[in-house]
Design a protein around this nucleic acid. Sequence first.
DNA 1: TATTGTTATACTCTATAACTATA
DNA 2: TATAGTTATAGAGTATAACAATA
Lengths: 146, 146
Amino acid sequence: MTVPSGPVSATTETERLMFEFVDAYERAFEAAAKEHGLSPAHACVLGRLDSVRGMGELSDELGCDASNVTQIVARLEARELAVRQANPDDRRFRQIQRTTAGDAVYAAFEESFDFPRRAVANLTTKEQRQLATLLGKSLAVKERGA
Amino acid sequence: MTVPSGPVSATTETERLMFEFVDAYERAFEAAAKEHGLSPAHACVLGRLDSVRGMGELSDELGCDASNVTQIVARLEARELAVRQANPDDRRFRQIQRTTAGDAVYAAFEESFDFPRRAVANLTTKEQRQLATLLGKSLAVKERGA
DNA sequence: TATTGTTATACTCTATAACTATA
DNA sequence: TATAGTTATAGAGTATAACAATA
């Protein structure tokens, strides 16, 4: 189990609940991945392979180094959950995709990772819309610089 | 940068925003820790040392193995950010606490980790209360078993 | 003997730097 | 020469199992 991101001496109840939510989400993700023999990183990459992807694309989205993605994908390939093929138009590029087995494992993982579904299910339709609006508004923080 | 927990093919906008929020929170935590030469795990443990703590207490709260905490605390001690002392009443127990230097580093980290503060600042007081209520309600998922 | 914590070990995640293959 | 990706390597996080110290 990865140690949680926090707590910081939360000054408000809202901040405390943000941390609790993030912590619960992460723990649930990790536990669901483990159920299917996946590390969080493997589950994450597998989830991005809904369509054919390039290595650079993946490392950009994941915000991590390309060499890291190479290793994760190499393991997925070794387990026959994904394959890498050179792009015939420019053989420097690789095309990564899930195998049928990868599809099955990922579907099973998603079934296990019920935290977001259950969290939403605890709310009325109106509350779900409210929560989405508030989260979106709070995330505007990202745009404000720093 | 740790790879994000997701995405899972989010079926609703609310679920998608939950992931985005968690992802942004984690990235901000990791970046703030790095600014002060801390790993996320170090920042996390340091944050728990606001008062004197035991090793078992820490591993319980962190949801990870005791041997893991031993290593993290050993590094904090090597950097003179924390100290371990045997409890004189029962020398099997250790009392972990931050040093003055540890206090300073953690305070600086908290100053840098402004994501929750800024997220809250994007909301009105009423919206903050609403968000806290909705997050709390969605987290009831934890109590429902599984 | 039971409990607290540590050490030894192994595996994964991650990044940096050097490298290969392709263009 | 420039770009996409890989390999070599090293450091940190994590868990399991064996261990030491204390009770």
